[in-house]
C-alpha cells in the first residue's frame, strides 16, 4: 500500500466517476416501481451489455496488477513468484482451477487464501495487512483476486479434482449448502435450489442446476452495482451468511472454501467472464 498510494488516489477518482455513472443509470432504471418486473431484469442485462467494454472492475484489475508486480512488505518482494496451483508465477488459467489442494500448506485453498499465503511467505506481510479493509470497496485483496481471475477469462471453470481432500471439501460444501440453522431456518438451498425464483425482484440462481450455476459463477469476482464495488466470491458468500443472520464466518475459513468447491463443481465448464457485473 505504501508503495502504491499515488496510484490509489488516481484509482479512487476514476472509481468515483464510475460510481456516479452507475448511480445515474440505476435511477434511470427505476426497477422498484416498474409495473413489469421482467422489464427491470432486462434492464440489468442492458446495463451489463453497456458496461461490457468498460466494467468498473477493470480498474480493480489494474490495481491488482500493480499489487502483483510492485515490491511490498518487509521483504520488498513482488508476488510474481506466487504459486496459485499451476507453478510459481503461472497466472493463465490459475483461477479457473481453484480452489485446490496445496501440498505446502496441507489445505484446500481458494484464490483469496492462497494470495494471503503468498503475501505472507513472499512479502512478509501479516494476515491483517494482507486483509486490510477487506470489507470496504477497493481493498487490496479484492483487487488482487480480480487481477488473478481476469487471467482466466475465457477459460472454463474446472476446479481441481486431483487430491482426495478436494472431493472431501466438495461433499462438505454440499452438506453446508443444505445446512439450515438460525432464527430464520435458512440455508443456501432456501433461496438457491429452485428454478426462476426471486427475492423481491432479485433473480436467484439455482445452484442445483448446472446451467444456472454456471451463469452465476462465471461472473465472480464481479462489480456489484448495488455496492458500487467489486466483490470476490468469498466476500459474497460471507455476506450471504450474514444475511442469513449467522455470525461472521472467518475469512478464508474451511466452511467458505468448501462451499466454493461445491459451487465451482456445480458450475463446472462455465466459461469465465471475470470480472463480471452483478446486481
Amino acid at each position: 500500500m505504501k508503495s502504491s498510494s499515488g496510484d490509489e488516489i488516481g484509482m479512487k477518482h476514476r472509481l468515483t466517476a464510475w460510481v456516479a455513472l452507475g448511480i445515474g443509470l440505476m435511477l434511470g432504471i427505476g426497477w422498484a416501481t416498474a409495473a413489469d418486473d421482467r422489464r427491470a431484469l432486462d434492464q440489468i442485462q442492458k446495463y451489463r451489455d453497456m458496461l461490457k467494454d468498460g466494467n468498473p472492475a477493470d480498474l480493480m484489475e489494474l490495481k491488482g496488477e500493480g499489487l502483483w508486480t510492485t515490491p511490498r512488505g518487509p521483504k520488498q518482494a513482488t508476488l510474481e513468484q506466487c504459486d496459485l496451483g499451476l507453478g510459481p508465477g503461472v497466472l493463465e488459467g490459475a483461477y479457473a482451477q481453484l480452489p485446490r489442494w496445496f501440498d505446502d500448506v496441507g489445505r484446500v485453498l481458494d484464490a483469496e487464501s492462497r494470495l494471503i499465503h503468498c503475501m505472507s511467505t513472499l512479502q512478509g506481510l501479516t494476515r491483517d495487512e494482507a486483509l486490510q479493509n477487506w470489507t470496504r470497496p477497493g481493498s487490496d485483496i479484492e483487487a488482487l483476486v480480480t487481477f488473478v481471475a481476469a487471467r482466466s477469462r475465457g477459460l472454463p471453470i474446472r476446479a481441481s479434482q486431483t487430491h482426495p481432500r478436494e472431493a472431501d471439501m466438495a461433499a462438505v460444501g454440499e452438506a453446508l449448502f443444505f445446512r439450515r440453522a438460525g432464527p430464520l431456518d435458512f440455508s443456501c438451498a432456501t433461496c438457491h435450489s429452485q428454478d426462476a425464483r426471486r427475492i423481491r425482484l432479485q433473480e436467484l440462481p439455482n445452484f442445483l442446476d448446472p446451467a444456472s450455476a454456471r451463469e452465476s459463477m462465471i461472473q465472480w469476482p464481479a462489480y456489484r452495482v448495488s455496492q458500487s464495488a467489486v466483490w470476490t466470491l468469498e466476500r459474497r458468500l460471507i455476506d450471504c451468511i450474514r444475511q442469513m443472520r449467522a455470525p461472521d464466518a472467518d475469512y478464508g475459513s474451511d466452511a467458505i472454501i468448501a462451499l466454493q468447491v461445491y459451487l465451482q463443481r456445480q458450475a463446472s465448464g462455465g466459461v469465465l467472464e471475470a470480472p463480471g457485473i452483478k446486481r
Binding site: 462438505v172 440453522a181 472467518d250
Partner: peptide, 26 residues
C-alpha cells in the same frame, strides 16, 4: 460427511460467541 460438516462449522466461526452458537449456528 455431516459430521465433518459440523467440525468444519466449528472451525470456521471462531469469533462467534457461545450465545451466537446456540441461537444462530447450532
Amino acid at each position: 460427511v455431516l459430521t465433518r460438516a459440523e467440525d468444519t462449522m466449528r472451525r470456521s466461526f471462531t469469533t462467534a460467541t457461545e450465545e451466537e452458537w446456540r441461537t444462530r449456528l447450532a
